Amino acid sequence: MRTIAIISQKGGAGKTTLAIHLAAAAAESVALIVDTDPQATASRWGEWRKGADPEIIDCGAPTLLAGKLSKAAELGGELAVIDTPPHADAMARQAARLADLILVPCRPKAFDLAAIEATAELVKASHKPAFVVLMAGPPRAPLIYQEAADVIEGSFGLQLAPVMLPERAAFHHSTAQGRTADEFDHDGKAACESRWWKRTAISSGGKVWWSIQ
């Protein structure tokens, strides 16, 4: 079972939004979300979803995470997306240790970019392939994104994912209804951007880590 950890030590970075859209994009696989955040945002979204895939399981302690993933794999899980809480070193480190791939959501703003320094250190210590996913920025702001890329790649030595999810009202409206942006407005811009995960490959060191094609 492939395992992707969504990690950011800063709150409000878009971890849950990324987790639910990433898992939903893997419709061809048996995907699940492991909600390790005490706020249980992903679990609440699952309740609003009324049982539709992806499945969401709770995990409140780092020591339980390996067992939860193992059980999910035994039951046929093919992809697990771990949604981690902010300011939680123990859970984030355990998620990073168990993951095949780490994604770090980040808004392209000065305070958010400065705050990923701690996350960058955690990611590097894990020795796992990792990418920063820019979230909730202006849809059209090439200079802002270039400046963000310079900080992420130049100052922190992390790679940028070839996919980003800009600020779109559809993300807010859809999650409040237990849906994804694609389900909310299939032809909308947010839906098209979230579907990029289905056709975009993320590769590092000659190995493709993410691709649904």
Rank of each mutant, 00 (worst) to 15 (best):
D83A: 01
D185N: 12
G137Y: 05
D37T: 04
I82E: 03
A96K: 05
I57T: 11
R2N: 11
E153D: 08
G12Y: 11
Q159D: 10
K124Y: 00
G14I: 08
L134G: 07
A25R: 01
P139A: 15
V133R: 11
A176F: 01
P38C: 07
C192S: 14
L122I: 15
Q39D: 07
A73F: 06
W196H: 07
H21N: 14
K128P: 05
A52V: 06
L79S: 01
V132N: 14
R168T: 06
A96Q: 05
W209N: 10
A161E: 12
T84M: 04
R49M: 10
G46P: 00
A13R: 14
L75P: 00
L32D: 00
T200A: 13
A40Q: 13
L18E: 13
A92N: 10
G51D: 14
P105N: 13
Q213C: 07
C106E: 05
A52H: 10
R195C: 08
R140M: 06
A13I: 10
A110F: 10
K15M: 05
T3H: 00
G11P: 07
W45N: 09
W197V: 09
A99I: 04
Q177S: 12
P108Q: 13
T175V: 14
K68Q: 03
T175L: 15
I4N: 01
S204A: 11
P129A: 10
E117C: 03
A161H: 09
E117R: 15
E117S: 14
P105D: 11
H21V: 11
K68F: 00
S204D: 13
A66E: 06
A191R: 05
L113Y: 11
T175F: 12
L75K: 14
K198G: 10
G205C: 12
A31C: 03
D185E: 14
S43E: 02
K128I: 02
Q9N: 08
E153I: 04
A130Q: 06
Q177P: 00
G12S: 13
A148I: 07
P108V: 09
L113P: 10
I202F: 11
A66H: 02
Q159R: 15
T16Q: 06
V30E: 07
A27I: 02
A115V: 09
S43V: 03
R195Y: 06
Y145I: 04
L165C: 12
T41P: 00
K189Q: 12
C192H: 14
G12M: 13
G178P: 02
A27E: 14
G67A: 11
I6H: 06
L113E: 11
A99R: 00
K10C: 02
R199N: 12
S126A: 15
R195D: 15
A23R: 08
A5E: 01
P162W: 01
T200S: 12
S194P: 00
P105C: 11
I82K: 01
R49G: 09
H172Y: 02
R199H: 15
K198T: 09
A176H: 06
P86A: 06
A201M: 10
K198L: 12
A96H: 01
E78M: 08
T36Q: 03
